[in-house]
């Protein structure tokens, strides 16, 4: 479980998060909606200690993030925008092994995790391929596999669909849905709710650094007017 307790954060005296409290359960699939600048990215970066709150605190599975960064960062796997800039190695397998290597696991365990993570994202057996030769959708999935190899309880994704075409976007979404069905919590930030909201258990919308809407997709959609979020053409979800 990820818990935010009255978290506030400002960059150069400009408030970006103001008194945000919410919690996300294991296995929940949550969409974090909101316009650019609404505070989504900042909120996500607090979930594993990439930022420190000015006030309030963040807990992962009951432990304050600031107390155990390693536990927080291995429990909350993070995937950023621009997958191209997140890879640390030239080949798929080496890149996915980076996180488990940092945890000091032995080689057999690292290999097992790399194999399993690639299977989960539907790319089994492609360890030795060069990352540059992959399509955008495949790169996104390798980035997700890199986070999964830490065996996190939550996966947090920040606009992972930037630059992806519709089929690639769908294939990434399918992987996320099946991960969530298997018990991994998914927190997905996006400004575009089309064809994702039927997968979600819950929609949280941010506006000016505060939680504006929080509820099941069907109820939340009706309240998103004026928040600059692209919603499905149908009002049903």
């Amino acid at each position: 479980m990820i818990e935010f307790r009255s978290v506030s954060h400002a960059f150069d005296d400009v408030p970006v998060l103001e008194d945000v409290s919410l919690s996300i359960d294991a296995g929940e699939f949550v969409l974090l909606a909101g316009a650019n600048g609404s505070g989504k990215t900042t909120l996500l970066r607090h979930s594993n200690g990439l930022l420190e709150p000015d006030s309030g605190e963040v807990l992962v599975d009951g432990t304050p993030v600031a107390e155990d960064l390693i536990a927080a960062r291995s429990s909350v796997g993070m995937v950023f925008q621009h997958p191209r800039d997140q890879f640390v190695a030239a080949t798929v397998g080496e890149d996915i092994a980076f996180g488990p290597e940092n945890l000091g696991l032995d080689r057999a365990e690292i290999d097992r995790r790399v194999t399993a993570a690639l299977e989960t994202v539907n790319m089994a057996g492609r360890e030795d391929e060069r990352i540059d030769a992959l399509s955008g959708g495949e790169q996104s999935r390798v980035a997700i596999a890199g986070a999964l190899a830490m065996e996190p309880t939550h996966l947090v994704l920040d606009e992972p669909f930037t630059g992806l075409d519709a089929p690639a976007r769908r294939s990434v979404l399918e992987r996320l849905a099946s991960l969530s069905a298997d018990g991994t919590g998914v927190l997905l930030a996006t400004h575009d709710l089309r064809d994702v909201c039927e997968l979600a258990d819950r929609v949280i919308a941010m506006h000016d650094g505060r939680v504006a809407v929080d509820g099941p997709p069907a109820d939340a959609l009706a309240e998103l007017d004026g928040l600059e979020v692209r919603v499905p053409d149908t009002t049903r979800c």
């Binding site: 970066r45 594993n48 993070m78 800039d85 997140q86 640390v88 996180g99 940092n102 945890l103």
Partner: peptide, 19 residues
Amino acid sequence: RADRLSLALRARCFAWNPT
């Protein structure tokens, strides 16, 4: 690119003593 990379390195527990 480097600044985005450094964020990813931190999120992935970039450590002094890896395997």
